[in-house]
Amino acid sequence: MKIINPEKPKDLNELQTSLSKLDQRLQGIAADMERTQIAEYVDLLNRPRTLIWRNLLAGTARGVGIAIGFTFFAATILYVLRILGALNLPIIGDYIADIVRIVQIQLEGKTF
C-alpha cells in the first residue's frame, strides 16, 4: 500500500491521480465487505428470534447426524465383531462373543 504524501499536490493532475487511487481502493474495500456479508450478519444479530431459530435447526441437524453416524459405526463394529467371533479365535473369540450376545440381548429389550 502506497502512502500518499501529505504535502500539497504540485498540480491538479497529481491531485486527480491521488483521488482516483483512493477511490479505487475504497471500491475494493467496499467489494470485500460485501463479499463477507457483514450486513446480513448484523441484521441477523438484530433479530434474536431468527438467530435462535437458526441455531435450533442447526443443533437438531447436528444431533440427528451424530445419531445416524454412530448407529452406522456401531452396526459396522458389531458386524466385524460377529465375523471375528465366528472364527473361534482362542481368547479374543470368547470376549467378542460375550459382547455380541450382550448387545443383541439389549437390542431385544431384555436385561442380561
Rank of each mutant, 00 (worst) to 15 (best):
I91A: 05
R82E: 12
R54P: 05
R62T: 14
R47I: 14
D32A: 12
T17C: 15
M1N: 00
R101E: 03
A39Q: 07
A97F: 01
R25W: 09
I68M: 05
F73C: 12
D43S: 14
L12V: 14
R25G: 04
E40Y: 10
Q24L: 12
A39P: 01
L87W: 03
L78F: 02
P48E: 03
P6A: 00
E108S: 11
A58Y: 05
G28F: 02
L26F: 05
I92L: 08
I52N: 05
G28I: 07
L26V: 06
N55I: 14
A39M: 04
G69N: 03
G65R: 08
A39D: 07
T71W: 11
A30T: 07
A30L: 13
I96R: 00
F73I: 07
T17H: 03
Q16L: 14
N5P: 00
G28R: 05
R82Y: 07
L44K: 03
T36Y: 09
L84P: 02
T60L: 11
Q106G: 06
D32G: 11
Y95W: 15
Y79C: 07
R25E: 04
G93H: 02
A86K: 01
A58F: 13
Q16F: 14
L87E: 11
T60R: 14
T71A: 08
Q24A: 12
G59K: 13
T111Y: 10
E108T: 10
G93E: 01
G65Q: 07
Y41T: 14
V64S: 13
L81A: 11
F73A: 09
T76Q: 06
D98C: 13
K21T: 08
A30M: 08
Q106A: 10
N5I: 00
I3L: 06
K21L: 10
G93R: 02
I77W: 02
S18F: 05
L57M: 14
A75H: 03
R101I: 05
Q16R: 10
F72Q: 08
L57F: 15
V64W: 04
L81P: 03
A86N: 09
E34D: 09
R82F: 03
L15N: 06
D98F: 06
F112A: 15
Q24V: 08
V80Y: 04
I52A: 01
L45R: 05
P9W: 00
I91V: 12
L44D: 01
P9I: 00
E40G: 10
D98N: 13
A58Q: 14
P9D: 00
I92T: 11
L44C: 01
Q106V: 09
S18M: 08
R62G: 15
D23Q: 15
D94P: 09
E14L: 15
T60V: 15
G59A: 12
T50P: 05
F72H: 03
I68P: 05
G109Y: 07
E34K: 07
V64C: 06
L45D: 04
G69F: 04
Y95C: 04
A86Y: 05
L51D: 06
F70N: 15
L57I: 14
I99A: 10
L57A: 10
Y79M: 07
I52V: 13
A30K: 08
M33G: 01
L44I: 03
D94G: 11
L57K: 11
P6Y: 00
K10F: 05
I29R: 05
V42R: 09
T111M: 12
G109T: 02
M1W: 01
P48I: 06
R82W: 06
D32W: 13
